[in-house]
Design a protein around this nucleic acid. Structure first.
Lengths: 146, 146
DNA sequence: ATCTGTGCAAATAGTTTGCATCCTC
DNA sequence: GAGGATGCAAACTATTTGCACAGAT
């Protein structure tokens, strides 16, 4: 996935510059990290992994990236919001979360996507994105409680 | 829906009592309110609507009701967690959220449910619930920005 | 030189916890 | 009477904002 990641990072940096943002060091590090990571990170996780970047900068960068459609917010981390990159071509995954240990696993399913696309044509709403979250118990947690 | 709501309220009160909880006044009001409401409420909305009930009691009641499977948490209210009752018979809805004004509309779709049920049979996870959220722009917000 | 980006610290919003008291069983 | 239920206030966690300064253009 390294090649794909690199392309997201490039695309993000280009989009930021086209949107008139200057290229400071803090946001750049956030972009690099999000480009390397395949699944959701919380703002605080990013802040912890980038000790030289201020917390406010992390939140501001995430806000800007989300507004440009480069990342999306997902609800898989409990209290905190998770953020993950939006890859080009509409290809994306959804999440299954263990309610015991919090483990998050990604999955893709064409049939599910078809069903959701069919739902997207509504008179009262223009649907631009969707999120599916499955919740349950992962195999290792299941063993322990039995 | 009045009859259905009443039955959820009854069922919830019975389940609480069977679980060994005493019948205090605060939790009772929370249960009544959730039984009357068809879609998600946040803890603070409930707290505001029940001035005689302490905030901590609201959160504690929600925690207990969720643990008993009587309500579920949904991510449609932005920062705050939304809670809505779980109706018997597995019948349930999902949500579409306007990213401009925050309006939430519920919908049901059999094809979507079928696709998700098919996904539920996984070796590594026992899926017990799922949540689908569509995001976009509602008709009235769309008019204003055009 | 100008004006954006950044870090720090203070302020908010949502949620949880400690504790004394009230009330159910 | 004993122990759970409740309200209030303090504590916490996640997020946002104010502000002075560094750095990009």
């Amino acid at each position: 996935m390294t090649q794909n990641d690199a392309s997201w990072t490039e695309r993000a940096l280009r989009a930021l510059s086209e949107a008139g943002f200057r290229s400071g060091g803090g946001r750049r590090q956030v972009v690099d990290l999000l480009g390397e990571e395949d699944c959701a990170l919380t703002a605080l996780e990013i802040d912890r992994r980038l000790p030289s970047v201020g917390r406010a900068t992390v939140y501001r960068a995430l806000e800007q990236l989300e507004a440009l459609g480069l990342i999306q917010r997902v609800d898989v981390k409990g209290d905190a919001a998770g953020f993950e990159r939006v890859d080009p071509g509409g290809r994306h995954h959804h999440h299954i979360v263990c309610q015991q240990c919090g483990r998050v696993v990604a999955f893709e399913d064409d049939r599910l996507e078809q069903a959701i696309i069919a739902l997207g044509t509504r008179p009262d709403f223009t649907v631009s994105s969707h999120e599916v979250t499955l919740r349950g118990e992962c195999a290792s947690c299941g063993l322990q409680s039995s």
